[in-house]
Computed example of a mutant assay.
Amino acid sequence: MSAESLTTGQWWIVAVAASVSFLAAVHFCFRNRRATVYSVIAPVLGAGTVLGFDGTHGHSEMEALVIFSVSLLSLALLVVAIRPDMEKIRASALTGETYEVPKWRINLYGVLVVAFAVVVVFLLL
């Protein structure tokens, strides 16, 4: 599949679906109303960026939508991946202790998310 197989309108639908999946991941993984409200900032800024790149910097709107959609999906995967650690952090905070996520796990999550985003973007574009 390539990006040209979908129209720009269809890519907007994909972008909205990616935004909803990101918001759902944040809401169901963190279970915190404040985190859910703050997570709305990412899709709004992303949509503004997509509209800003339209016709500038040599990018088409479709390319910007692909990058935006894949970025939000990779962030949603990251949030789902760190959910067990967030539960441990919350349980430790309730007992007055601290819990640190091992550095290797944080690095592994980061590498996997970036690799996913880069591979999918290059496959689509």
Rank of each mutant, 00 (worst) to 15 (best):
M1K: 12
E4L: 15
S5C: 09
S5I: 12
S5M: 14
L6I: 07
T7R: 11
T7M: 08
T8E: 15
T8K: 12
G9Q: 13
G9R: 02
Q10M: 04
W12Q: 11
W12F: 13
I13L: 12
I13G: 05
V14I: 13
V14A: 08
V14M: 06
A15M: 04
A17Q: 03
A18R: 01
S19P: 04
S19A: 14
V20L: 15
F22V: 05
L23H: 07
L23I: 14
A24L: 15
A24I: 13
H27P: 00
C29G: 08
F30V: 04
F30K: 09
R31D: 11
N32C: 06
R33I: 03
R34L: 10
R34T: 10
A35G: 00
A35T: 10
T36A: 10
V37H: 05
S39L: 00
S39F: 00
V40K: 07
I41V: 15
A42H: 08
P43A: 05
P43V: 06
P43C: 02
V44G: 05
G48S: 11
T49G: 14
V50F: 08
V50Y: 02
L51V: 12
L51A: 14
F53A: 10
D54I: 00
G55V: 05
H57F: 15
G58W: 05
G58Y: 07
H59D: 11
E61V: 15
E61T: 15
E63H: 09
L65D: 00
L65V: 09
L65I: 06
L65K: 01
I67W: 06
S69K: 10
S71Q: 12
L72T: 05
S74I: 02
S74N: 06
S74R: 14
L75E: 12
L75K: 12
L77C: 10
L77N: 06
L77W: 03
P84G: 01
P84F: 03
D85R: 06
D85W: 08
D85M: 05
M86E: 04
M86I: 06
E87G: 00
I89G: 01
I89F: 06
A91P: 05
A91W: 05
A93E: 12
A93I: 01
L94A: 14
L94W: 08
L94R: 13
T95G: 01
E97S: 12
E100H: 09
E100W: 07
V101H: 00
V101P: 02
W104P: 03
W104T: 13
W104C: 08
I106M: 12
I106R: 10
G110M: 02
G110V: 01
V111W: 09
V114D: 08
V114L: 15
A115D: 09
F116R: 07
F116I: 08
A117G: 10
A117I: 03
V118E: 04
V119P: 07
V121W: 09
F122I: 13
F122M: 13
F122T: 07
L123N: 11
L124K: 08
